[in-house]
């Protein structure tokens, strides 16, 4: 990326600015991780909850919407089961 960053001299930043930037980047990375999880969850749950074949209506219907919500929650439950089991095997 050849953005405006190329023109910024980071060494000229004050210590306070550097600290603030560091915290900012930590927060933004956390946000990016969460968004990436949302993408992969949507990928999984769209496949599971929206019946195969063409799509006629743009709205989520009364079966699809709860299915997507439950899909997210159960996927995360399953994730916890895996972690717990691995923990058990290790210990």
């Amino acid at each position: 990326m050849s953005g405006p960053l190329a023109n910024v001299d980071v060494s000229k930043l004050s210590d306070r600015d550097k600290q603030e930037l560091q915290q900012f980047v930590v927060n933004e990375s956390q946000k990016a991780r969460i968004q990436s999880s949302i993408h992969s969850l949507t990928d999984v749950c769209f496949k599971k909850c929206i019946p195969a074949g063409g799509v006629k209506n743009g709205k989520l219907d009364k079966y699809e919407e709860p299915c997507v919500r439950q899909c997210v929650d159960r996927f995360l439950d399953a994730n916890l089961v895996v972690l717990r089991e691995l923990e058990r095997l290790r210990g």
Binding site: I38, T42, V55, N57, G58, K59, L60, E65, V72
Partner: peptide, 29 residues
């Protein structure tokens, strides 16, 4: 035309699903 219509509906549905996932996931976190 049919494929295009399907695409428009599918896009809207995918984005709705994305929003639902986002809300559910953030609430869970």
């Amino acid at each position: 035309k049919g494929e295009e219509g399907c695409f428009t509906a599918c896009m809207e549905k995918y984005m709705s699903a994305w929003n639902t996932v986002s809300k559910t996931y953030v609430a869970r976190i």
